[in-house]
Amino acid sequence: MSTRNNTAPTLGGSSVDHPSPSRGTVGLASLWFGLGGGPIAWSVFTIAIYAIAAQACYPRMVPLSTPTMGSRTLYVSLIVISCAAVIVGVAAGLVSMRNWRRTSGEISGNTHWALDTGEGRTRFMAVSSVMTSAVFLLAILVDVAAIMVVKPC
């Protein structure tokens, strides 16, 4: 149960509390990196590995049985890109976790009940970015698994 803090900053001259009292606790850049890092890493990663794999195995009009650049070179290229994507995805996740910890008590209430109430705009963005990072890191790892086990051509 939340109790209204009488000293809380209000929205302009109204009687309504400001929706993000913790907005000074974490920077916007940090919040946006947490929210966007995973999706952007996954998007760039997916386009890059698909373009490289497709071009290596199907460069012109006829599919090849082995990659034009050689299996080893293709494999190393894809793994290097994968590592970069995983690093960005993990970094976004860690930053998001830190943001969530810092803003978990933004507006008092059922803050331990992530499923039910997520009051506070800053906290909302932080919780969202934790979930985003997890989903998109998983998506990256699924592709990494494919690189490990699937024959390229």
Binding site: T46, Y50, A54, Y58, A139, V142, A146, P152
Partner: peptide, 17 residues
């Protein structure tokens, strides 16, 4: 349409995720 196996795996995975 004749997509290389790795391409199939990437997009099959994303379609499940």
């Amino acid at each position: 349409t004749g997509i290389p196996p790795l391409g199939l795996a990437f997009f099959g995975g994303a379609s499940m995720i």
